[in-house]
Nucleic acid binder design. Sequence first.
DNA 1: CGAACCTCTGAATCTCACG
DNA 2: GCGTGAGATTCAGAGGTTC
Lengths: 375, 375
Amino acid sequence: MAETKNAAKAAAKGSASAMNLPLDRIVQGDCIEVMNALPEKSVDVIFADPPYNMQLKDTLHRPDNSKVDGVHDAWDKFSSFSAYDDFTTRWLAAARRVLKDTGTIWVIGSYHNIFRVGAELQNQDFWILNDIIWRKSNPMPNFRGTRFTNAHETLIWAAKSADKGGYTFNYDAMKSMNDDTQMRSDWVIPICSGKERLKDGEKKAHATQKPEALLYRVLMSSTKPGDVILDPFFGTGTTGAVAKKLGRHFIGIERETDYIKVAQARIADASPADAEALGYNEGKRAQPRVPFGTLVERGMITPGTTLYDSHRRFAARVRTDGTLVAADSKGSIHQVGASVQGAPACNGWTFWHVEKKGQLYPIDVFRQQIWAEMH
Amino acid sequence: MAETKNAAKAAAKGSASAMNLPLDRIVQGDCIEVMNALPEKSVDVIFADPPYNMQLKDTLHRPDNSKVDGVHDAWDKFSSFSAYDDFTTRWLAAARRVLKDTGTIWVIGSYHNIFRVGAELQNQDFWILNDIIWRKSNPMPNFRGTRFTNAHETLIWAAKSADKGGYTFNYDAMKSMNDDTQMRSDWVIPICSGKERLKDGEKKAHATQKPEALLYRVLMSSTKPGDVILDPFFGTGTTGAVAKKLGRHFIGIERETDYIKVAQARIADASPADAEALGYNEGKRAQPRVPFGTLVERGMITPGTTLYDSHRRFAARVRTDGTLVAADSKGSIHQVGASVQGAPACNGWTFWHVEKKGQLYPIDVFRQQIWAEMH
DNA sequence: CGAACCTCTGAATCTCACG
DNA sequence: GCGTGAGATTCAGAGGTTC
């Protein structure tokens, strides 16, 4: 069998696959101890979703007074930044040891932890290849109106060191997944919800389950069929499920029995035939929305400019935030357009015009210009 | 230094103008020294675009532009990180000192430096409010096909500390600018090119000139007209030009004479928007408080009137003092609204309605009428 | 059966002026 | 400084129910 032959060869070379890796299994235990018990330089890629160390204070309510079910698990609590840094240093060192010289590591996080993880990766001589932005198409809003909607998470992709090349990057696969233009460092992917979201009774099985589409892109870009992917924070096993579907091997490490049970059932259900469905939401792109404020921000229309309707019966001035002021009303281009006409609704894009050299042009021409730039 | 001491005294006593700040000027010199000579707690917002030329494989530079020898040696790499960290620690400490307690700081960077900057911000007790992704609509492709197209940069927005609130976030203006949905943490903005790109002869005047649209959004979101914005790495003055256009003050710090010349000419050319155009959607929070009792006082609502929620599930009667009585509770419109629903809180203005000709109208319409009369 | 409407939920560091 | 209470605040998508 090929496996025996490879194993023999590997043994001769003193390399990994001879060493009885727990392939396609979940090992229960502390990830640092378990990694340290694995042979060194034995895995191709590591995907890690460590605790984010979010420091949530009180319970948060939506405007409709319902409670937000936040992450209050003990595993996300650290006493201080330095405790978190110490943890990060130790698990990254253990990860580095088991990673092949040609291997790469992925770590996902949010602003709560990702800067500390990134700095420590650099300190340990990992060589950052990209930082990747997972842009969530349906993030949770900011319910109190105090900040920007936190609509993304960050992944860092790094090689073992600057001079150790030979890592896998499936450039062409990525390009063809992206309508034949290079895959960019920002990925638009919905959060994990609906049927994909695993339940334990009525509650969600894990507070922070990642979408399979995200892991699909990670594994498609940076591994080959048959590669070994290690996930030291396995949770409910998204990495394992996608690895199986894509014909890769996984090694999962997880402490919590409840998560392991859910993950095992899930992976048993997964089959390589499901692979196609994973790429389902790739490629389809709707016409992006262009807010009027964008034209102001980009200097296409200056604050203070007067807009007119096509017959110059009505006028309004543009303010810095992209709202309009007319004689009796303020608001969006649509609201003010409706208001001056006494109409219930109005398409401000075609109603309002700017004057250039005595001629009136509908503001929609600027929007079309932006759309054109996007292609 | 006597000058600093006096200035600090002035700061303690009073307003920004009393502090003898170099408003709307470019100060030539090392940013750490210059910031340390400014009065403490004197600026509203800091925008910083620090250097990050630290990881080029062939010629590695220290922040002070001296070359690092023996680049390919791990020890030297570490030493360059540590030099960079030292620089970051010192300029951030200086920035922290000049920032008002209610101030916020913005720092922009790429994966080469942003993780180190972010970690140091947290170490110095800054409190991260958001990390923002500037998604470039027209990035430079990855020519060698070895990585994902590096199509974004990261900004960190942070308050001085977790418990010091009172920072400016123009939530409603951002929402207006974004077609009336919350502004997200990922911003799509083109890179600086074309006419906007400043030239010094035939070459570009600055290697990393930022687009004005980016600064426009930064300043619109986190400053008020008249605020003071400090930019310790002023370059060719994008921050200054946008600040001037938006009716804000700037203080620029820059070492290079060439950049200063370009920036001065550029800012002289920029012209500020007028008062009306500088207006923006400030939202309900900025409106004067109107007690519900006022509506009763003015006869807009008669004592004894019955109020309903929008589904007519709950009812309450208005008393002469502007309090409500429901089946089991008495108190303000908010207290009774919360009480009847068994909710932790309630905005009585939008919860309660009056009936006119069979139709329900929220009591907030009367308040808006009063606001309108105040203009 | 489809359209319309309602309900629920997601890695969240989520208030502030006044006494 | 701290307690109190007014009053401000949500988007996309999945899934279920009603008509």
